[in-house]
Amino acid sequence: MKTSRLVGTAALLAVTAFGAQSALAYQAGDFYVRGGFEKSDPESGNGALYGDDINVSEDTGFAYGMGYLFHNKLGVELNGSQTMDQDLTAGNTGLGGSFDSTPINLMLNYYPLGGISDARVHPYAGIGVNYTHFDNESFNADLDESWGFAGQVGVDLSVTDNLLVGTWARYADVDTDVDIDGTYKTRLDIDPVTVGAGVTYRF
C-alpha cells in the first residue's frame, strides 16, 4: 500500500470520529504504544563503488513505537521498524546485491498542545539518535553498524480518549563503511526520509 494512501486513510478515520467523540491532550504520566506502516526512502546518490555511483532502494514495512510523557509538553519515545530488505546497485559495474537494515530511534519529543484538555489534534516534533544494524549482505561485503542524528515531526488525531490515529515523517543520518572482499572499502550514505501512518493506544 502506498504511503499516501496510508496517510489519507488515517486522516479520514480521525475526521469521521470527531463529531461524536471527546478527547484529551497528551499530558504528563501518559504512556502509549503505536503500530503502523512506513516507507523508508534513501537519499539519491549514496556513494561510489569502483568509480560508479551507488544507489540504495526504498522499502516499506511495519513500524512500532512506545513512549512516556514526563511533562505535559515533553516525552521520550523509542521507535523503529521491521527489518528492511534493500537493494544496492552500482552503475554499470554489474556489482550489487541486497542487504537488511534494522533501524531503532530514541527520541525526545515536544508537544506544543500538551496539557490542553480539549485538544483533539496533537502535533509533535522530536530529536534524538538513530541506530541501524546491517545484516544478510547477499554480496561479499560487510556493512558496519551506524549511529547518527534522528529527527521527526508528526501529528496524532484523537478518535477516543485512548485511541488515536496519526502520521509522521522522520529523518535519520545513516552512514556505514562497506568492506568488500576484505580489500576494497567505501562509504555508504543512506540518510533515509521515512513517512508513515498508524494507530496509537494511550494508557
Results as ranks from 00 to 15, higher is better:
F70P: 07
H71A: 15
Y68M: 11
N92Y: 06
F62V: 14
I127L: 15
M107Y: 05
S101K: 14
P103M: 03
V153S: 02
A150W: 02
S101I: 09
A125C: 06
T89L: 01
F134L: 04
D85Q: 15
V153E: 07
S101L: 10
T132C: 09
L108K: 12
P123S: 04
L88G: 00
E137T: 15
D87L: 05
I104A: 14
P112G: 09
T89S: 15
A90H: 07
L88Q: 01
N92F: 08
N130F: 02
P112S: 07
D156F: 06
S98R: 13
E145L: 02
D87S: 15
L113T: 14
M66H: 00
H122I: 10
Y110A: 12
T132P: 06
Y64V: 10
Q86V: 14
D100N: 14
N72W: 06
N136K: 14
Y111W: 12
G65R: 00
G96F: 12
L143P: 08
L143R: 05
D144R: 07
S117C: 01
A141N: 07
F134T: 06
F62H: 03
G91C: 01
M107V: 03
A125E: 08
G148E: 08
V121K: 00
G75S: 08
Y124I: 07
T89I: 10
Y64C: 08
N79P: 00
T83Y: 02
L78T: 04
I104P: 04
D144C: 04
A119R: 01
S101Q: 13
N140W: 00
G114N: 11
S101D: 06
D156R: 03
V121P: 00
Y64D: 08
L95Q: 13
G94N: 06
F70H: 11
N105S: 12
G97H: 09
F139L: 05
N105G: 03
D100H: 14
D144M: 03
G94V: 09
M107H: 05
N130S: 15
E137I: 02
G91Y: 04
N79F: 02
Q82H: 09
W147Y: 15
L78Y: 02
I104N: 11
T132S: 14
V76Q: 01
T93L: 06
N79Q: 12
G75W: 06
A119I: 05
Y131E: 01
A119T: 07
G75E: 04
P123H: 06
M107E: 03
A125N: 06
G128V: 01
Q82P: 00
D118K: 05
E77G: 03
G97N: 11
E137S: 14
D135A: 14
S81V: 04
D118V: 08
A141T: 03
F62Q: 05
N109R: 13
E145C: 00
D156Y: 01
A141W: 04
E77H: 03
N92T: 11
G114Y: 09
A141Q: 05
G96M: 10
Y124W: 13
L74H: 00
G114P: 11
N105Q: 12
A90Y: 08
